[in-house]
Design a protein around this nucleic acid. Structure first.
Lengths: 205, 205
DNA sequence: CAACATCCCTGACATTTGTCACGGTCGCCT
DNA sequence: AGGCGACCGTGACAAATGTCAGGGATGTTG
């Protein structure tokens, strides 16, 4: 049992990166890539079919993001541990990933040789977390934004006018302005656009 | 001469992706990764030292972006062909990369097995361009923004107020508003933030 | 139940923003 | 020289934005 191959599922929307990661992991004699998917909503199906030991999930994916896929996978295939990989070291991502049931969190800045080791640790039941990112997460704290404020701010990302946002979120125009004002205050920003940027950097959207 | 290994230089700021790409290319018997760098301003030095046949450059990099690195490399090491790889299929990126002297342009959505083939084609003197992206580039055309409009819009990315922008760009507040207004009109946007988003999506910043 | 927090909305206000018309400078091309 | 376009600035105006002080509805907690 201890000398069995570790079965790995790979999820990343960029085909080139996905294939490259597969090549990288296949160099390790004790790892075996048993599935590759490019969308978040294909993770659970593939995991059911291939019964992987570890799932390597990117956060930015179409269909369902890595956080949602983590939660779904933890419920549907509890025997499969999750290692989340992401481009951006947003503090909120780490927190939400761990709360969703992930066992590890790695940013794409980490040296390539450490990835296989991270997979092994996760498979062994250990937790793998980027230390500097963990520190950031503690100081950043959880999102101060309320649910509606998050909705409104998320809708404001593409730069529409207040009337547009109101139509999207199904709220009054004045209410939208109030939520925006609150979000601006809580983020310490001085403009709607700045509030969006700050919230995005912290992974609050 | 024809059976010699193709020497490849790899430039990507994400260490994990860089290492994974190296693993992927090393699977090919006729390719050899001779250098890996994580910053745009290290490309020329590494190329001088290792004399690669093909340089694989990411666009998003600290130090100097892939476009600037392409131009510098084309001048300093003319024997080395450049294949640009990027996450975002911004039309302007493709145009500027080709104008800077790149021989190929690939987005990270392309299947992994095609990368090695792209490297071989570039090495053989052919041009490699994502077809759908090439079409987009034709319809999008070159940036309609004037130099100052680009400056102002670039400064507006982090969401500051007009006074902030004026301080950064060293212009009058009214002039900044004029440039913003012009940029909004040219991009077809209805808000400053939307103009920023559109310009960014087209690679005009 | 009462206190509390969150959400939604209203209306009004000062500020900021986007637009327009105008004049002036500079460099480039015919 | 003259015309052209890009650049900088001014001033003024309507519209959008951000802020504030309220009120009502709901759910939670002591």
């Amino acid at each position: 049992m201890s000398d069995a191959l570790i079965r790995v599922l790979l999820a990343d929307d960029q085909a080139l990166v996905r294939g490259a990661l597969a090549a990288l992991l296949s160099l390790e004699p004790d790892l075996e890539v048993v599935a590759e998917v490019g969308r978040g909503d294909e993770v659970v199906d593939a995991a059911r079919r291939t019964a992987p030991d570890v799932a390597l999930l990117d956060v930015e994916m179409p269909g369902a993001d890595g956080i949602a896929a983590t939660a779904a996978l933890a419920e549907a295939v509890p025997g499969c541990r999750v290692l989340v990989v992401t481009t951006f070291g947003r503090p909120g991502y780490l927190r939400r990933a761990m709360e969703a049931g992930a066992s590890g969190f790695v940013v794409k800045d980490t040296p390539a040789r450490q990835l296989a080791e991270a997979v092994r640790r996760v498979h062994a039941g250990l937790r793998v977390v980027d230390p500097s990112l963990a520190a950031e997460t503690l100081v950043a704290g959880r999102s101060p934004l309320t649910a509606r404020e998050t909705d409104v701010l998320r809708a404001a990302r593409d730069g529409g006018t207040v009337a547009d946002l109101a139509a999207v979120v199904h709220l009054s125009e004045g209410t939208v302005r109030n939520h925006l004002s609150a979000a601006i205050g809580k983020t310490g920003a001085r403009t709607r656009a700045e509030a969006v940027r700050i919230a995005e950097q912290n992974g609050w959207l």
